[in-house]
Structures are given as C-alpha cells and as structure tokens.
Simulated assay, not measured.
Amino acid sequence: MQIWVDADSVPLIAKDLIIKTAERTQTMAIFVANQPIKLRKSPLLVMTVVPSGFDKADDLAITSDIPLANDILDKGGMVLTTRGMVYDKNNIKQKLNMRDFMDTMRGTGVLELQEMSGQKPYGDRDKKAFADGLNRLVR
C-alpha cells in the first residue's frame, strides 16, 4: 500500500499524523502538490511536484478535493479526508452533487459570500477522526 497525499490542502496536524503512520507501518507516503513542501528525510516520504491534477490512484489518497476524490475512486483508489471521512462509491456522488449545487448558487448570486460559513477550524475532534480513519485503513 502507498498513501497519496494532496499536500496543497492537508493541515499541518494531519501531515504530521500521516508521517508518523507511514513510519510506524513502514508505508510509503507520497505528498503531491503544485509546489514543494518540506518533509523530513526518510526513504518512506516522497515529495512530488506536479502542475495540476492527479492521474495516479494507488491505494489510499488523502484529500478534501471532491472532484479529485471522485477521480481517484474511479481509478480504484481509496480516499480519506483530513477530517476522517472515507469517500467511497456510495457517498461521493452525493458530495459532488452538493458541491455543484453550492457552486451554482454562488454563481447565480443566490448565495452571497458573507452568507457562507466556510470550513470550520481544524480541531481536536477532526484530528482524532482523521487519525482513527488513517489507522483503520493503513495497517
């Protein structure tokens, strides 16, 4: 198994948990981003800089990007968000539909930016849910 990480969007706390899990389980973790991020030297940690997109879906990918998650699932990969949610074929279409609906609402002006609450801060509950999900999927 390999862990693919959308490093552009992963919170620092989640990144640290991924690194610890990779080292504990001797699992390769590949961090993918459009600019380099700092990783400690380890044969299990790889930084890959790409222009955009994600065309390889091996094993487990960590991302909160819903269209990217859908593409990964279509290619046979598993997806875990940094808040501990596992995306699968049973729930990804609903997430895509909601994302598209909200995008349409914003585009038509029905929803003003100030009416949208945005994403809540990454807290201890998110950290625990992510760690539990990661430990469940990587053994």
Rank of each mutant, 00 (worst) to 15 (best):
I3P: 06
I3F: 09
I3L: 10
W4M: 15
W4P: 01
D6Q: 02
A7C: 06
A7V: 05
D8Q: 09
D8P: 00
S9V: 06
V10A: 12
V10P: 04
V10M: 12
P11K: 08
P11E: 07
P11D: 04
I13L: 09
A14I: 03
L17F: 02
L17E: 07
L17H: 02
I18A: 03
I18H: 02
I18N: 00
K20M: 09
K20G: 04
K20V: 07
A22W: 05
E23N: 06
R24K: 14
R24T: 12
T25M: 08
M28P: 01
I30N: 11
I30M: 13
F31M: 02
V32E: 00
V32K: 06
A33W: 04
N34R: 10
P36Y: 04
I37K: 03
I37A: 00
K38S: 05
L39P: 02
R40L: 10
K41F: 05
K41M: 03
K41H: 07
S42E: 00
L44D: 00
L45A: 07
L45N: 05
M47L: 05
V49S: 08
V49R: 05
V50M: 07
V50I: 15
P51A: 14
S52C: 01
G53C: 11
F54D: 07
D55Q: 06
K56C: 07
A57L: 05
A57C: 11
D58L: 13
D58W: 08
L60F: 12
L60T: 01
T63S: 11
S64L: 05
P67Y: 01
L68W: 00
L68Y: 00
L68A: 14
A69S: 11
A69I: 03
N70K: 14
D71Y: 02
D71W: 00
I72Y: 07
I72F: 13
L73C: 12
D74Q: 14
D74R: 14
G76V: 09
G77P: 12
G77W: 11
M78D: 15
M78I: 15
V79T: 09
V79I: 11
L80E: 12
L80W: 04
R83E: 10
R83M: 07
R83T: 13
G84H: 05
V86F: 09
Y87P: 03
K89P: 00
N90M: 07
N91A: 05
I92T: 06
I92H: 03
I92N: 04
I92K: 05
I92Q: 01
K95P: 00
K95C: 08
L96N: 01
N97A: 15
N97F: 08
M98E: 15
R99H: 10
D103Y: 13
M105W: 05
G107E: 12
T108I: 15
T108Q: 10
V110W: 13
L111P: 04
L111V: 04
E112A: 12
E112W: 00
Q114L: 14
E115A: 09
G118D: 10
G118E: 10
G118A: 13
G118T: 08
Q119K: 14
K120E: 10
P121N: 11
P121R: 12
Y122E: 01
G123W: 02
D124Q: 13
D126P: 03
K128L: 07
A129M: 11
D132W: 07
D132H: 10
G133C: 09
L134V: 05
L134M: 12
N135P: 03
R136P: 02
R136Q: 13
L137N: 08
L137W: 04
L137F: 08
V138E: 09
V138W: 03
R139D: 12
